[in-house]
């Protein structure tokens, strides 16, 4: 089996993987980073969003073996020194979740939106940019509020 090496949440990791292994399987099953969820498994729902080399991707639709040398950040990599990331804190503060299943993907997409679009986000833009993340509980209202607040907080 091919060996794949990558950096996950700042840590160098390496493993023999079956070429069929999806990035999300590698993260959850090999590395036990179970914060990244599998929802639809068809790249529509966004529960599995992680950052690869700084860009948000759906980890259910990428092969681990193809990501040799990549720099991967998962939901577990956001909090620093026991302190929640401002976007995580904003989701908590604004109750941007109910069951929480979609939340890791929502937060990873939210951070990606801020990285691309800046700290002042219009509601319409947030809703458009979130089109690849599906929540079946909340109706999105508090998620949008959380992202707006988190974006501002990320600006410091």
């Amino acid at each position: 089996m091919p060996v794949v090496s990558m950096t996950v949440n700042g840590k160098a990791v390496s493993a023999d993987v079956d070429p069929r292994t999806l990035l999300v399987q590698y993260l959850r099953e090999n590395l036990r980073l179970t914060g990244t969820h599998v929802g639809c498994d068809t790249s529509q729902c966004g529960a599995c969003v992680v950052h690869v080399n700084g860009a948000a991707i759906k980890s259910c639709t990428a092969l681990a073996v193809a990501l040799e040398g990549a720099n991967v950040t998962t939901i577990e990599g956001l909090a620093q020194g026991g302190k929640l990331h401002p976007m995580q804190e904003a989701f908590r503060e604004n109750h941007g979740l109910q069951c929480g299943f979609c939340t890791p993907g929502m937060i990873m997409s939210a951070v990606d939106i801020v990285n691309r679009k800046g700290n002042k986000l219009e509601e319409k833009l947030i809703r458009e940019e979130l089109e690849g993340n599906i929540c079946r509980c909340t109706g999105y209202h508090n998620i949008v509020k959380a992202i707006s607040a988190g974006a501002e907080a990320m600006g410091g």
Binding site: A56, A62, S109, R116, G132
Partner: peptide, 9 residues
């Protein structure tokens, strides 16, 4: 096309 994560791939 698709959504931001899909456009990244």
């Amino acid at each position: 096309i698709g959504d931001p994560a899909v456009r990244n791939r």
